[in-house]
Amino acid sequence: MANFQGPILDVHNLCVEYSTGSVNLFSRKRKSAVKNISFQIQTGECFAVFGESGCGKSSIINAILAFVPVTKGLIQFENQNLLHLFSSVPRWIRPQIQPVFQDFHQALNPRRQIGSLFKEIRSIYPDRPDSAELLNRVGLHCDVLHAYPHQLSGGQKQRVGLARALSTNPKMLLLDEPVTSQDLSIAAQILGLLKTLQKERKLTFLLVSHNFSILRLLADQVAIMKDGGFLEINTPGQLIANPQHDYTESILKQSGIR
């Protein structure tokens, strides 16, 4: 497994639909959020998705974790199919893909101490790293273990979220707007942390954001997303120098890049 060749994540023709509004025995309204998306991520790479709010970025992540029903498509992690019967990720793969969420306010259970979170994970995966070690790694003191989420600052919560994600020894992190709700100095710290972690542990990232200047710092490949579909995929440098679509150009202008 360790010397696995080829793309670590292979997404092929992914479609996600939500049922909305009236749900009754006769009719279901559907809204399509992700339309026919394909991409591949190589081991150790950072693949980023860039698009406006509501274009379906988070839906991709939710689809990979099987939190939303996928209507069509194929998702393979190290050549193993993630979309099985009953649409749930096989149990042995789960610890290898971990999310870090956009909204750090909800990312931690308000009624539980931080420590219990790690204890619980270690009760299922006994060989995983010690919680104090993890917290140190993300720059937190181990006093945090006895705190409740509301006693932590936003940046601390975000770091705890990161430590939680790392606690299962994942191969891949799904980062959903990891720093958007932070002020700039904290965002820079966390991005730096992510970068070192990536090198240290050969982590693969799927990064989702609507802030191009943040993407640029980490991403090897960037996909431009609009209304549920990918317009183009390229390196950030190429996108800035040579955008293929008018939309790419205009959205980069809006972000003050071009």
Binding site: P99, F101, A107, E120, T168
Partner: peptide, 16 residues
């Protein structure tokens, strides 16, 4: 909520 998604992603059982 993200805390539930995180718990699911880390492989905790439904009942838990």
């Amino acid at each position: 909520f993200a805390y539930v998604k995180a718990a699911r992603a880390s492989g905790l059982g439904t009942n838990r």
